[in-house]
Amino acid sequence: MTNDLIEYAVCADPDARQGVSHAWCMTCGMRSQEAEDRAVVKHWCLGHAGETGHKRFRAVVTTFLMVVPAPGRVTPARPVDMREAPSTLSAGGGRGLKP
């Protein structure tokens, strides 16, 4: 049964932007623009606080990941659709996907 599992690793997607962040006001719900430079988001928070008196913000930093075969494993012949391939536990204790 474990022969049909592909062991994988999760890593940063080299083709995607990294560290994209934004913040929103916990009082009124206004949201900053997304930016790779966190200072831009902090500046928006300071400006919003100065204009409104609102002082509580939620900040989110998004990173983009991709799943790749673990070292020594081959890539499946077709991409694995995460909606069609539920995650299962392999015999070795690692997690795998059915191709």
Score class of each variant (00 low, 15 high):
95 R>K: 06
99 P>R: 13
31 R>N: 00
86 P>A: 03
79 P>K: 10
2 T>L: 06
8 Y>L: 14
57 F>Q: 11
74 V>L: 12
98 K>E: 05
97 L>N: 10
91 A>P: 04
38 R>I: 05
33 Q>D: 04
13 D>N: 15
51 E>G: 11
4 D>G: 06
41 V>A: 05
46 L>K: 14
35 A>V: 05
97 L>I: 12
26 M>R: 09
33 Q>E: 02
96 G>V: 00
2 T>W: 07
14 P>C: 02
88 T>R: 11
96 G>K: 00
16 A>F: 12
60 V>C: 14
63 T>F: 03
92 G>R: 15
39 A>V: 02
55 K>C: 13
26 M>E: 11
62 T>K: 08
81 D>A: 13
42 K>Q: 12
69 P>K: 12
16 A>T: 09
77 A>L: 13
38 R>D: 02
54 H>K: 11
23 A>L: 02
70 A>W: 07
82 M>T: 07
38 R>M: 09
70 A>K: 12
85 A>P: 10
63 T>L: 09
6 I>H: 07
16 A>M: 12
28 C>N: 10
17 R>C: 03
30 M>E: 11
56 R>L: 06
93 G>A: 08
40 V>R: 14
51 E>R: 15
56 R>S: 04
96 G>N: 00
22 H>I: 06
84 E>L: 09
41 V>D: 04
6 I>Y: 02
7 E>Y: 03
97 L>G: 00
60 V>Y: 12
27 T>R: 14
54 H>L: 01
99 P>S: 14
25 C>D: 09
10 V>T: 11
66 M>T: 14
30 M>H: 04
96 G>Q: 01
61 V>C: 14
45 C>G: 00
1 M>L: 11
84 E>Q: 08
82 M>H: 04
74 V>R: 15
73 R>K: 10
25 C>I: 08
84 E>A: 09
97 L>S: 04
12 A>S: 15
67 V>G: 07
32 S>A: 09
13 D>P: 09
47 G>T: 15
